[in-house]
């Protein structure tokens, strides 16, 4: 019996977290994070004589909420999507950014919030295979025009971005989209537009899907992540990307509330958003930086013609507040529409 109890304690002790934990930064993984580790995290670790660990996650902030509530915070700096950042900030899951450590003026407009410092931009736009369909839609109105551009289309599954696209296709100006979408009439209009295109529509969930579908010819024209499209084009795929149809948003670096490394986390964020490190990163990976000096640098723009930040004046900035206010309602309506 005593052996059993001793064994149990040994097991529990082995599983207990180490007393002194290293500074941990968490992002979306993949090749980009590998580059970030080499170009951003490790130099910071060396310069400050500490260890910086990194992990990846699926942008689900459930675990972050749980760890803040359990007061067992194992992540320090996290890359968070805009709505999660906003919600989390209101709920006290993220620390307020220390703007004396991170200069707030270095970011593009809309690149900072109370709890977040702009990390990278992302966006969606229309793309298609130039070899199969040399002529493709250049606007959302044309995306809807199945006479001129026959073939199946692919949109992202979900109300977010899809409803804005529906309104844009109906002639609503970019500046008015959210005002219209906030009204019952506007929402009805958006769903009616989706109904019109429905027989030709496929919805994707995973980011790679629209690219697989366009590549195999299953879909003629699709809306997909511009980062992936840019990578595909650079690796030789004959894709045409229509920047006039850009919808974009920023992801932010945030600090988890209750982190024991709060000061170091703030300094890390200052480093992650500083000019020089980001220039280094831009040299090895086509990023969309939110730090203004890098985003507007003509040399980097020239070297990265497919950098999204070259085109944001043509695009629609996805309105986080709108989706926080209306997201639940509209997503439910979208699910109902999908199931009809």
């Amino acid at each position: 019996m005593t052996r059993w109890i001793a064994g149990l304690f040994a097991l529990l002790a082995a599983a207990a977290p180490a007393a002194a934990r290293d500074l941990t930064v968490v992002a979306g993984g993949g090749a980009l994070q590998d580059h970030m580790r080499r170009v951003l995290f490790e130099p910071f670790a060396r310069a400050n004589n500490i260890t910086v660990r990194d992990q990846s996650y699926d942008y689900n902030i459930g675990p972050i909420r749980a760890m803040v509530q359990a007061r067992n915070v194992t992540w320090d700096v996290v890359m968070v999507e805009a709505p999660d950042l906003r919600q989390g900030c209101d709920d006290g899951i993220f620390e307020r950014i220390d703007w004396t450590v991170v200069p707030r003026d270095r970011f593009l407009p809309g690149g900072t919030t109370e709890c977040g410092a702009g990390a990278l931009g992302w966006g969606v736009a229309v793309f298609f295979d130039e070899r199969r369909t040399p002529q493709g839609p250049a606007t959302y109105a044309e995306f809807w025009d199945v006479q001129r551009f026959p073939g199946r289309r692919a949109l992202r599954m979900g109300a977010r971005m899809t409803l804005e696209i529906a309104l844009l296709s109906d002639g609503v100006a970019a500046g008015d989209v959210y005002r219209v979408l906030a009204t019952a009439e506007g929402q009805r209009r958006a769903f009616a537009r989706l109904d019109a295109l429905r027989p030709h529509l496929m919805f994707w969930r995973g980011g790679q899907q629209p690219f697989d579908w366009v590549g195999s010819g299953e879909v003629a024209y699709a809306v997909g992540f511009v980062g992936r499209a840019a990578n595909a084009i650079r690796s030789g795929q004959p894709l045409a990307l229509r920047w006039d149809t850009l919808l974009y948003a920023y992801d932010y670096w945030a600090v988890v509330r209750g982190s024991p490394h709060r000061d170091a986390a703030m300094r890390l964020i200052a480093h992650l958003t500083a000019e020089e490190p980001l220039r280094e990163l831009a040299r090895v990976w086509p990023i969309n930086p939110v730090t203004a000096a890098v985003a507007r640098d003509p040399a980097i723009r020239a070297a990265n013609p497919l950098m999204m930040t070259n085109f944001i004046d043509r695009g629609l900035h996805i309105n986080t507040e709108f989706w926080l206010d209306n997201g639940t309602d509209l997503e439910q309506r979208f699910t109902a529409w999908l199931n009809r």
């Binding site: 675990p63 909420r65 007061r71």
Partner: peptide, 11 residues
């Protein structure tokens, strides 16, 4: 478990 801080723990 979230209420008592046990969510996300080994125990």
């Amino acid at each position: 478990y979230s209420a008592v801080g046990l969510a996300g723990t080994f125990v």
